[in-house]
């Protein structure tokens, strides 16, 4: 879990997010709509913090603990993570 991937695409992040929900919430993959609110799958505040932590570990990012509550769907969360990755890459490039 702690290995950093080469920068994934937004679609890959969405896929990661969906499979995370399948494992964490023990629900079927076909039940996950990418625009549906996380809460509709039963992702409560504690579970959402776990998902944020897992995303941090995977992507090497530092996120706020409410990141998944504030971006509460697969699409919104993936877009948010993508933006964080771009910001981080820009920061690194600018720092050199």
């Amino acid at each position: 879990m702690s290995t950093k991937a080469d920068t994934p695409s937004e679609a890959e992040i969405q896929e990661w997010c969906a499979s995370y929900l399948v494992t964490a919430l023990r629900i079927k993959r076909d039940r996950i709509g990418f625009d549906a609110d996380f809460a509709s799958f039963g992702l409560d505040s504690v579970e959402s913090v776990f998902m944020v932590t897992a995303a941090e570990d995977w992507l090497g990012l530092e996120l706020g603990s409410e990141a998944a509550i504030e971006n509460p769907s697969v699409n919104a969360f993936a877009a948010f993570l993508m933006k964080c990755l771009e910001k981080k890459a820009a920061g690194r490039a600018g720092g050199r």
């Binding site: 809460a39 509709s40 039963g42």
Partner: peptide, 20 residues
């Protein structure tokens, strides 16, 4: 049932911060 349960889950999780 599945669709309706989703609506219920979302409402309960958002309002009370617990999973059903």
């Amino acid at each position: 049932a599945e669709g309706l349960a989703r609506v219920v889950r979302e409402a309960v999780t958002k309002a009370h911060e617990i999973a059903v």
